[in-house]
Every structure is written in C-alpha cells, then in structure tokens.
C-alpha cells in the first residue's frame, strides 16, 4: 500500500509540471506581461516607463520560457516560467500581482469555502442516498414514477434559478435568513442555511437518479434474492447488503470531490457573498492576475490527484477483495 501511494505521488510530479506548463502557455497566449501591467496600472495616463517598472517590480521583465541571452541552465531558469513556477512545488505561492500574499489568501478563504461545501456535500449525499433508496424500495410504483419525474424536473432547472428563487422566497418574502453575507464562527450558520439548502436542493435531481440506478442494479443481483429468500426484511436487505455493495460506485464519485471542496463554488459564493476560494479564482481571472490563476490551478490539480488517491484507498476499506500491489 505504501509503495503504491508513493508511486502515485511520484506520478503526480510530471502531471503537475504539465498542468503548470499548459496553464502558463494558455494564459500568456491571451495576456502579455504588458497587458497585465496596463490592467494593473489602470486605463489612465499609463506611460511605457511605468509599464516597464511594473514588470520589473513583479518579475515579468524576463523572457517567458527560454532566455536566449543567458547561458547554461540559466537559459531555462532565468525565465518567467521557472521563476514563477518552481516555488509552487513547495507550496510557496508567492504574491499576487497586486502584491498580496496568495498563501495568506488561500488560508483565509478556504474556511468559508469549506463551511459551505462540506454541509452541501454531506447533507446532499445523505438526502440523495435516502431518496434514491426509497425510490428503489418502491420501484415500479406510483411513488417511484413521480419521484423520477420530480428528479428529472429538478435537474432540468438551472442552479441560478434555485439561487435567485431561494433568495427571493426565503430571504425576501419570508424574511427568514439573510440574503447574502458571511460571518466567522457560529454566526456563519444563519448565512449558510440558505446556500446549503439551495446547494442540496439543486443536486437532488441528478444525485438521486444516479444513486437510484446503482441501487436498482444491485437489487437485481443474486445475493439480494438470496437475502430475501432467507427472510430478511426489506430494510435489512437495503441497508445491510445493497448499500454496502453499492458503496464502490458511490465512492468513485464522492471521495474524489472531497479535497476539491476546499476550492469552493464559483456561483454560490458570488451570489451569497461568501468570501471563499471560488470567488477568489474568478476575481483573479477577471483581473488577469496570473500569479493567482496559476496557484489555484496548481492547487486544484494537487487536490484532484489527492482525491483520486483517496478514492483508490477507500476501495480497500469497503471492498476487502481490493488489494494494491
């Protein structure tokens, strides 16, 4: 197991270098360092001298990938790519183009993101599995039929509609919770109630249908028929056998996203005024702040790789037959 994890971690290095390189190339195809300087300095009275100074101050006055004027290894190291990327691998994200420390921002912002994403994930998983199991239990009945219709309807509605509708009804018409905002600590609860509700509700349609399919596939298998034949109650069959055996496909989809919960939600964080990493990323893209974009893409890649690794490990926990060589 340890050797397997170590091997996967080593595989991650070339993947991260590749992701970093692609991000770099894509970003600088659209934005030149001069464009970044102009955006940072504003639209008025920007002189070429000011642009050069900004680039020098922020380390964008070097060649992008290859420094032809340098010699030896410096041809590769004395470049924007190397100078800006090398430190990422020790998780030193450096400063944003506006001078602010990215590590500090990530440490500050990941908690609001997590405070929203974790309840949505946990409650959503519980609601979806419960609903899906009840549909599987009452399969081929009117309850199942209308439940599926409801799921299809819910997954056909845009997330934005849930957000705006939720804000209108719950916050504006019923005045039950604040329409947006965030506070640290226990005060966060009243701000998170609505976004969590919206996040769970918007995921019910697709989540339930997916889990229902898994459960129905399992309930058709021989071991379920055997369990029923032995006289087990339907609840025992569902929770004692079907759920356990359905965990492998459920974990495939669920565990991989756990690390990514840190990255936040783009839409919800913007509409509900939650100062998380999702809104940080979108702000950086709009401001053409390469330092932040690069750091967030790198972090996203690391977390995704970690998620895949966790998924593999979780298989061994739910299925004793799985062993890593």
């Amino acid at each position: 197991m340890t050797a397997y994890i170590l091997r996967r971690c080593l595989y991650a290095i070339p993947i991260l270098v590749g992701v970093n390189l692609i991000t770099f190339v894509l970003f600088f195809v659209v934005n030149t360092p001069d464009d970044m300087a102009r955006l940072a300095l504003g639209a008025k009275r920007v002189t070429p001298d000011a642009i050069e100074k900004w680039k020098a101050e922020h380390g964008y006055d070097k060649p992008l990938l290859v420094n032809a004027q340098a010699s030896g290894v410096a041809q590769l190291t004395d470049t924007i790519f190397f100078q800006k990327s090398a430190r990422l691998f020790v998780f030193d994200f450096g400063n944003a183009d506006d001078g602010r420390n990215i590590g500090y921002e990530i440490r500050t912002r990941m908690w609001p993101s997590l405070a929203l994403a974790l309840p949505v994930f946990v409650v959503g998983l519980a609601v979806n599995i419960t609903f899906a199991m009840s549909l599987a239990f009452f399969r081929a009945t009117r309850y199942d039929f209308w439940g599926v219709v409801l799921c299809v309807a819910m997954m056909s509605i845009s997330t934005l509609f849930y957000i705006i509708g939720g804000q209108y009804l719950v916050s504006k018409v019923w005045s039950l919770v604040p329409i947006s905002g965030f506070a640290p600590g226990a005060d966060a609860a009243k701000f998170l109630a609505l976004p969590v509700l919206v996040g769970v509700a918007s995921g019910i349609g697709s989540g339930t249908r997916w889990y229902r399919t898994i459960f129905l596939e399992e309930t058709g298998k021989d071991y379920v028929r055997t369990a029923r034949a032995k006289g087990l109650s339907e609840l025992d069959v569902l929770f004692g056998h079907v759920l356990k055996n359905a965990l492998v496909p459920i974990l495939t989809g669920a565990v991989v996203v756990i690390p990514l919960l840190f990255m936040g939600s783009l839409l919800s964080e913007s509409f509900f005024g939650i100062p998380g990493l999702g809104s940080y990323t979108i702000d950086a893209i709009q401001a053409q702040d390469f330092a932040i974009v690069r750091a967030m893409v790198f972090l996203g890649s690391v977390l995704y790789i970690a998620g895949l690794l966790l998924t593999d490990i979780s298989y061994t926990l739910v299925d004793p037959r799985v062993r890593f060589a």
Binding site: I164, Q167, Y168, S171, K172, S175, I179, S180, G181, S270, F271, F272, G273, P275, S279
Partner: peptide
C-alpha cells in the same frame, strides 16, 4: 462596507 458582487442580493438588501 460589505462586499456584494451580484446585483440581486445587493438591491434586495437595500430594500430591506
């Protein structure tokens, strides 16, 4: 000063 990135919550909070 509270940060409001979206117009709908901002407007509704003003009305409230």
């Amino acid at each position: 000063y509270t940060r409001e990135k979206e117009g709908i919550p901002y407007w509704n909070k003003f009305l409230q």
